Computed example of a mutant assay.
Amino acid sequence: MPPSSPAWPETAPLGSYVTSWRPAPVTDEDPLHADPVVALSAVLDLPAPAVQDGDAIPPLWHWLYFLNWTAQGDLGPDGHPLHGHFLPPVPDRQRMWAGGRCEIVKPLRLGGPAERVSSLSAVTTKHGRTGELLFVTERREFRQDGRVRLVEEQDIVYRSGRNAARHPDALDESAAPEPDAPWQLPFQATPALLFGFSALTANAHRIHYDAPYCRDEEGYPGLVVHGPLLALLMLELPRRQTPERPVRSLSYRLRRPVFAGEHVSAYGTPGGTGAELSVATHREAQHATGEVVFG
C-alpha cells in the first residue's frame, strides 16, 4: 500500500493510487444479541419490541452488528478512520456512501452466532461535477447455521482533497413537488437522533454531530443525516405496510443530503412483486430512492 503522505503529484489520477491495491477478504463474527435492535427501536422512537432469540433481524438492521471501533488516535480530522483494510490509499480522502444492494436468502436470526466475509468487489474511477471520483464496491456475505443468509454490496465514493465549497442545493427553500404515493411515513432527524444512530453504528464522522465543522469545513448548512439512516427509513415502509411479505432483495441509491431538523417523508408505491421507494423534503423529491422485491 502507498504511504500516507505520497510523493505523487496532486494532479495524479485517482486510479494510479490503487493500481496495486488488492486487500484480502476479512472474516468477522458476531453473536447477534438482541440489544442493538432494542436500542435502534428506541432511537427511532418505535414501540419497544418484544424480541427474543430466533426472531428475524429486519432488512438492513444487520448494520448494527459486526462493528469495528477505531481508536481515537487513528481517526482523521473529519472523524473518519485514517486507516482501514478496505480504505483506498488515496490522499486526503473524502468519503460518501452512494448506495447498495442486498439479497436476503433467509433473514439473520437473533441469538445465533453469525459470520461475515467481506471482500473488495470492484474499483472504478469516474468524473463527476466535482472532479474525479473513485468508486469502491465492498461485498459482504453473511452466514448463519452453516448457510448463506444474506449477500450485500455497498458502493462507497472517494474524492481526493477537501471540499469546503457551499452546497447551493442544500440552501434552496423552494418547495419540491410531493410524490403521489399510497405509502407515506413522516420523519424528522434531530441532532439527538443522529448522535444515537452514530453510536449504534460506530460512526464517528463529524458531519453527523459537529455543526461548526459541517459549515466551515464541508460547506453544509447543518448536520448531515446518515445515508444508511435514509435507507432504513425507506425500508420501514414495506416492514410496516406489508409485514406478511418478506423482502427478498433490495437496492437503494443516495442522491442528495438531508439535514438535521428538516421534515422528511418516505414514500412508497407497491407493485405486483415489490415496491418503489423514495425520500423527499421540501427541497427535493428524491434525496434517496430504493426498490424492494418481495419473497
Score class of each variant (00 low, 15 high):
Thr190Val: 13
Ala175Val: 12
Arg159Leu: 07
Gly196Met: 08
Pro179Cys: 07
Ser198Thr: 05
Pro168Leu: 07
Pro186Ile: 10
Trp183Arg: 09
Pro191His: 10
Phe187Ser: 05
Val157Trp: 00
Glu173Pro: 13
Ala189Cys: 07
Pro186Cys: 10
Leu193Pro: 07
His167Gln: 02
Leu194Ala: 09
Phe197His: 03
Leu171Cys: 12
His167Lys: 06
Pro177Ser: 15
Gly196Arg: 04
Ala199Ile: 04
Pro168Asp: 00
Ser160Lys: 09
Arg159Gly: 08
Trp183Ala: 09
Ala199Glu: 07
Pro168Met: 08
Arg166His: 11
Tyr158Ala: 03
Pro179Leu: 06
Arg166Gly: 14
Gln184Cys: 10
Phe187Glu: 06
Ala181Lys: 00
Asp169His: 05
Ser160Tyr: 00
Phe187Gln: 06
Ala164Cys: 13
Leu193Thr: 08
Ala175Asn: 15
Arg159Asn: 05
Pro186Arg: 08
Ser198Arg: 03
His167Ala: 08
Phe187Arg: 06
Ala176Thr: 03
Asn163Cys: 10
Ser198Glu: 02
Gln184Glu: 12
Arg162Pro: 08
Ser174Thr: 15
Leu194Val: 05
Leu185Ile: 09
Pro182Asn: 06
Phe197Leu: 00
Ala175Phe: 13
Arg166Gln: 06
Glu178Phe: 02
Leu185Met: 12
Gly161Lys: 02
Pro168His: 08
Phe195Asp: 03
Pro186Glu: 11
Ala189Pro: 11
Ala176Leu: 01
Glu178Leu: 12
Pro191Gly: 07
Arg162Gln: 10
Thr190Ala: 12
Gln184Lys: 12
Asp169Leu: 09
Leu171Gly: 04
Pro186Trp: 05
Leu171Asn: 12
Ala181Asn: 03
Asn163Glu: 02
Leu185Asp: 08
Pro179Asn: 10
Leu185Trp: 14
Pro179Thr: 05
Gln188Val: 15
Asp169Gly: 13
Ser198Tyr: 00
Ser160Val: 04
Leu185Val: 05
Trp183Asp: 07
Arg162Gly: 10
Val157Gln: 00
Leu193Met: 15
Pro191Lys: 13
Ala192Ile: 13
Ala164Thr: 09
Ser174Ala: 15
Ala199Cys: 03
Ala164Glu: 09
Gly196Leu: 07
Asn163Val: 04
Asn163Pro: 06
Pro168Gly: 05
